[in-house]
Amino acid sequence: MWNLFKSTLMQIFAVGMIGLAVGALLSAGIGAPKPRPVEGPRKFFKRITAALRQHAGGLGIAVAVLATFMFWTQAWGFWAARSTERSGYKNLTVEAAAYHDARLGNANMPFLNFVRANLADGQSYALAPAESRDDVFVRQWSSYVMIPHLLADEQEADLLVIFNADPESVDYDRERFAELVEFEPGYAIARRAQ
């Protein structure tokens, strides 16, 4: 209710100012008004223009007063929201905060940590099967967690990451990636043959 009141007040003020300004523009133009007799609506807008010019300082003060009103009516809400957020984040570790968006899809963080631990410096990896490789979340999230290891094509990769599929059913170069290590059902890595 309070927010609705503030919103309405602000809308009326802003729209009113725009209305006055546009009306005055249409009536008098931007330049200095030419002295000529005016009648009807023109006279009305002329008066508005003159009043605006006369009370320009007051308009500035009015905006400041409105801003003061807006600020103080939202101040407590801002403070309370930050307090709530701080309480919510109190026990968040650096790692939990970094991987907070893992909840957006099937991230399987323990498996990705296992993969990362199995990649030596400078080694690259590829994702399999095609469904996982083409899954927007899996592709982007896994490649984010694996930095600085490069997500490469299968032909160039040092390690094949089998994500959410039975290794037996995945089509890959078994001679090249000869050493299969299963992390848990559906999740495995295949190391390149030495």
Partner: peptide, 20 residues
């Protein structure tokens, strides 16, 4: 946005008219 863009449009127009 707390009406900042609307207010900006209004104030620009007012300044153009009043010559400030």
């Amino acid at each position: 946005w707390n009406f900042i863009p609307t207010l900006a449009v209004a104030i620009v127009l007012v300044c153009l008219i009043v010559g400030v």
